[in-house]
């Protein structure tokens, strides 16, 4: 077990003290933002499953051939496939790993975990949440009553079973997870990084507080005045955030609440291709959609106007009566 399983508190505080937490503009390009993610880092990913995945940021990291990343996310979908299939990550911490319930098992995950030497570290969904929350609270662990008695706990020496000092009950302590960097996609934020999230927030607030740096990608950059008109909608405060990138449709082909649903024809074609051949199918997918396009807009063009507009119509319909 690495000695850095739980980051020592003094080191967490030192890193925090060194961060520039002043109210300052931090808008950069996707290429520049990728510079915050270095080989070997622990990278937390916001959203869940097919929702608010920071796909554009992952797309850029894959194009820049990062390596040896350790990814954590509450539930992974095709993003899990892509980080293993592209080779940027060799370790994924999550509670569920497949493309989506509609498509059964991920052959990509199976290939890399069963034969390819990559690690899928499984925790219960709530345990992932408690790990980010402990990280965000500045404590080394949190107790939970889940996972006890299961074989998952036997596979996780990182978790410690104790007898509660107050009641004597069995409890499981799960270690804090403080990613080096978090990638989070939101509907809107200002140039300082005050981020507003519509709909499902998943574990993004805890993740942002836990991480030692945060890259926000956003559908829109709005003015600070707009943020101040509805401060109750701000879910991530600016001082957590180190970079802001405006990327419309930055979760495609996954969804972004109120703006677009998942692009299901693209997802189905992807799943058919990579599950038919998790190596060659994945390589062809990455060549066509990740390495060849000159820009994120060109990637969206390849997904196709019809598909993007249909997903947009469905996404906006959440606000219809």
């Amino acid at each position: 077990m690495p000695d850095t399983l739980v980051e020592p508190y003094t080191r967490l505080r030192e890193k925090m003290a060194q961060r520039d937490r002043s109210l300052r503009e931090k808008v950069v390009s996707l290429e520049e933002a990728a510079g915050f993610v270095q080989d070997g880092m622990k990278v937390g990913i916001g959203g869940s499953t097919m929702s608010r995945t920071p796909m554009a940021m992952l797309w850029e990291l894959i194009r820049q051939h990062r390596k040896d990343l350790s990814i954590s996310r509450c539930i992974v979908s095709t993003d899990g496939d892509l980080v293993f299939g592209s080779g940027i990550a060799n370790h994924v911490v999550t509670s569920w790993f497949a493309q989506g319930i509609l498509w059964g098992l991920s052959k990509v995950m199976r290939h890399h975990v069963e034969n390819g030497g990559k690690r899928y570290e499984e925790w219960s969904h709530m345990a992932v949440g408690m790990r980010f929350r402990a990280g965000g609270m500045g404590v080394p662990f949190l107790p939970t009553r889940a996972m006890l008695g299961s074989d998952i706990v036997g596979q996780r020496p990182e978790a410690k079973q104790i007898d509660c000092p107050f009641t004597g009950e069995k409890l499981l302590l799960v270690p804090a997870l403080n990613p080096d960097v978090a990638l989070i996609h939101v509907q809107r934020c200002d140039p300082y990084g005050n981020a507003q999230i519509d709909g499902l927030q998943f574990m993004d607030i805890d993740l942002a507080l836990a991480a030692n740096s945060v890259i926000l990608t956003t559908e829109r950059i709005v003015s600070n005045d707009q943020i101040r008109r509805a401060p109750d909608q701000t879910k991530i405060p600016f001082f957590c955030v180190d970079a802001v990138v405006e990327v419309p449709y930055g979760s495609a082909p996954h969804e972004c609440y109120g703006l677009y649903e998942p692009m299901m024809r693209h997802m189905e074609a992807y799943v058919a291709q990579v599950n038919a051949d998790p190596v060659k199918g994945m390589q062809e997918y990455l060549d066509r959609y990740f390495y060849s396009p000159k820009s994120w807009n060109e990637y969206l063009s390849l997904i196709g106007m019809d598909e993007v507009l249909e997903a947009t119509q469905k996404g906006r319909s959440i606000y219809n009566d």
């Binding site: 539930i75 995950m109 975990v113 969904h125 345990a127 889940a146």
Partner: peptide, 10 residues
């Protein structure tokens, strides 16, 4: 290797 627990264990 199956997908895992998700919230099932919880």
């Amino acid at each position: 290797r199956l997908p895992g627990t998700g919230g099932g264990n919880d």
